[in-house]
Amino acid sequence: MTSPSTGPKPGPGPAGAPGRGRRPGLRPGAPAGLRTRWWVGWAFAAPALAAYAVFVLWPMVLTAQYSLYQWNGIGPSTWVGLDNYGRVFTDPELLDTILNAIRLIVFFSVIPVLLGLAIAATIRRIAASRLAVVARTVVFVPQVIPLVAAGITWSWLLSSDGLVNQLLSAIGLGGVTRAWLGDLSTALPAVGVIGAWVQLGLCTLLLLAGMSRIDPALYEAARLDGAGPLREFFSVTVPSLRQEIGVCVTVTVISALASFDIIYISTQGGPGNSTMVPGLEIFYQAFSDREIGVASALAVVLMALVLLCVLPVQRLTRERP
């Protein structure tokens, strides 16, 4: 629930949704909740549907349509079939953006989830203390501020004169200091660190909330079996948190694949295209290079890629009824 650029993220999402929360047996076999005329429900849903259809569904159709044409946004367009998709998958410049987005998953998703798990497990026992209550507020701040602001802040921290290098020099690592966002080999990880910073607090708190719902009896049973903290973690905590982990992964993976704000602000895709991601490339292709067709083909690929990554996660972590 974090990245303003991509807006709302689903929870357990599509597959888990239908029927969840419904109480079987309450109204067995009843097709409609209330005795109303058939069109009343549609009338209630219609305004939302209309807004959604005009500003989301229709543009989705248009994106797919644009992707089959060569068009500069001004003059007439030419039908090119699947050529634009061919370019997306063969032009290294475009293909690399997709690979970069996938690499970002490590930082936006894997690290915050793993680190969040470790931290949550460590602070689980003092989750009710006053310090923890304060911490709940503090670690949420990155979720609340615009990602643009996170980008600006960290661009400064990671610059050659920034705090990160200052700290490294202070602990005797002056040799590795560099302009982290300006170095071909470190720019992508550096952008990733910004994402990790944004996501870590949310993941930690989500997982902590999940842990507080785990039945203490499970832990006691494990201790009686002679399990140490480590085995306890893997045999009790992690399995019980399957759903929360699924949520964290879903939200953060989407924010990695659809990243735009942070990169637009901190590197503009450079140096040497090393941090170019699909979102930014779409923006450049569509509005600077006026290659509406290529931009749209990449957009379709991006939307498909998000679904492709999110659906398996849903499937794996869904709560079995």
Binding site: T6, G7, M60, Y66, F283, M303, L307
Partner: peptide, 14 residues
């Protein structure tokens, strides 16, 4: 539900 995972960049051009 189809729109839940939609990255805004996907439809920004149209």
């Amino acid at each position: 539900v189809l729109g839940l995972t939609l990255p805004f960049e996907g439809i920004i051009t149209p």
